[in-house]
Computed example of a mutant assay.
Amino acid sequence: MASNKLKINDIARLAGVSATTVSHIFNKRDKKYRISPQTRQRVLSIAEQYSEQAHIRQYLVKANSTDTIGVIVPDISNSFFSMFLHYLEASFRKKNIQLLITCSHYNKDVEIKVAQNLVERKVDAMIVATSLDSDEFYISINQNTPVLFFDRYLKDTRLPFIASESLNSVAELIQPYARQLDEFYFIGCDTQLTSIEARLKGFKQGLKNVGLAVNPQWLVSDNYHPNKGYLLLKGVHEKLGRLPKAIFTPSGNLLQEVLSYLVEVKVKPQDICLCSYDYHIYLDYSYYPIDAIMQDFENMAHTCVNVINDLLNFNELKYNAFFIKPQIIRHR
């Protein structure tokens, strides 16, 4: 060959077939044109020998692609994840790519198992809202199957991730009420997760911005399990002998659980200030006026599609971290 860069004509000559046949195989049209599995395998085997060349790797990825993307979320019933999946599925469907959606149920062992199952199903890439403490497991998967973290990323991770911006938005959310009050409670869970940790930092920053010193007793958190928000608020109520004047919850499911307690003890809307991350349309009709942060699901979904496309085509990412700006919805 006159050049070290292998061309389709070179592969065709080495395989003893036409360049058109090679092109059909690389573009997954071999079945349409009734190219035998033996010929397909011969062409791909030759290409594998030159896979160190970037354009050959791209040919191989496309030829072997399954047009499926694996997605792992901790809780499909969570309104945030269900809304995100709605937009994500629609975005990939436009590209004729199917999602294989799995659920980890906040269980690390389950997450590892479902991730391994997705690899066995030969998904082209994975989008993961992880509950793991390290990226080492996904680094090993990423060697052959690109991995994109979503919402929950890991500190100092080498893998790309997409999340909503939290620090500035949460600070802006609570500041108008923090200026008027002498206390503000954070009712949260799993603050070790980077997404929740960022919302807690934003909460503290909002108090600081208006000159309200953070009282450690206002920061109430625990490991999450269903109804934990209800139990945490009940504990605060019993300890204080009254309810807090203001509450911020860092997720929609915790807000629902807090609301269930408020309804049970028959708190009047004017007697408490509520703010939360994760807006849902039901808040427009809530008995309690609640200011909330609405994440830009559509933008996040489109960003996921674009990043996955770059990863599959071996394009260098301009950024490793993508923070999508949310919107504040006020009801007070």
Score class of each variant (00 low, 15 high):
residue 2 A to M: 13
residue 5 K to W: 10
residue 13 R to H: 13
residue 16 G to T: 13
residue 16 G to S: 08
residue 22 V to L: 13
residue 26 F to V: 02
residue 26 F to C: 05
residue 29 R to L: 09
residue 30 D to P: 09
residue 31 K to A: 15
residue 35 I to R: 07
residue 36 S to G: 13
residue 43 V to S: 14
residue 43 V to R: 11
residue 43 V to E: 15
residue 46 I to A: 13
residue 46 I to H: 12
residue 47 A to Q: 08
residue 48 E to Q: 14
residue 49 Q to H: 14
residue 52 E to H: 12
residue 53 Q to R: 09
residue 53 Q to M: 06
residue 55 H to P: 10
residue 57 R to L: 12
residue 59 Y to P: 05
residue 61 V to K: 14
residue 66 T to I: 08
residue 66 T to M: 10
residue 67 D to E: 10
residue 69 I to T: 03
residue 70 G to W: 01
residue 70 G to P: 01
residue 79 S to K: 10
residue 80 F to M: 06
residue 82 S to Q: 08
residue 82 S to W: 11
residue 83 M to F: 09
residue 89 E to Q: 10
residue 93 R to C: 05
residue 95 K to I: 11
residue 95 K to A: 15
residue 101 I to P: 01
residue 101 I to Y: 03
residue 102 T to L: 04
residue 103 C to F: 07
residue 103 C to D: 04
residue 104 S to L: 06
residue 104 S to A: 11
residue 106 Y to E: 15
residue 108 K to N: 11
residue 111 E to M: 07
residue 114 V to W: 02
residue 116 Q to T: 11
residue 121 R to F: 05
residue 125 A to D: 00
residue 125 A to Q: 00
residue 126 M to A: 03
residue 131 S to R: 05
residue 132 L to I: 11
residue 134 S to Y: 05
residue 134 S to K: 15
residue 140 S to D: 12
residue 142 N to Y: 02
residue 142 N to Q: 07
residue 144 N to E: 14
residue 146 P to T: 12
residue 146 P to Y: 03
residue 147 V to G: 00
residue 153 Y to N: 06
residue 153 Y to I: 10
residue 160 P to Q: 04
residue 164 S to N: 06
residue 168 N to T: 11
residue 169 S to W: 01
residue 169 S to R: 04
residue 175 Q to W: 00
residue 176 P to M: 07
residue 177 Y to H: 07
residue 177 Y to E: 04
residue 178 A to W: 04
residue 179 R to M: 09
residue 180 Q to W: 09
residue 182 D to E: 07
residue 189 C to H: 03
residue 191 T to P: 01
residue 191 T to S: 05
residue 194 T to N: 00
residue 194 T to L: 00
residue 195 S to D: 05
residue 202 G to I: 08
residue 202 G to Q: 05
residue 203 F to S: 04
residue 207 L to F: 03
residue 208 K to L: 06
residue 208 K to R: 08
residue 208 K to W: 03
residue 209 N to R: 07
residue 210 V to T: 07
residue 213 A to C: 08
residue 225 H to F: 14
residue 226 P to I: 11
residue 243 L to W: 06
residue 243 L to A: 06
residue 243 L to H: 08
residue 250 P to I: 08
residue 251 S to F: 01
residue 252 G to C: 04
residue 255 L to H: 02
residue 258 V to W: 00
residue 261 Y to D: 07
residue 270 Q to D: 10
residue 275 C to M: 09
residue 278 D to Q: 11
residue 279 Y to H: 10
residue 282 Y to K: 06
residue 283 L to D: 02
residue 284 D to R: 08
residue 287 Y to P: 03
residue 289 P to W: 07
residue 290 I to Q: 06
residue 293 I to W: 04
residue 295 Q to M: 07
residue 296 D to Q: 09
residue 300 M to P: 03
residue 301 A to D: 09
residue 305 V to Q: 00
residue 305 V to Y: 02
residue 305 V to T: 04
residue 308 I to F: 02
residue 308 I to Q: 01
residue 311 L to C: 06
residue 312 L to G: 05
residue 313 N to T: 15
residue 317 L to P: 10
residue 319 Y to T: 06
residue 319 Y to S: 09
residue 322 F to Y: 14
residue 323 F to K: 08
residue 323 F to E: 00
residue 326 P to N: 11
residue 327 Q to D: 13
residue 328 I to D: 14
residue 330 R to W: 07
residue 332 R to H: 15
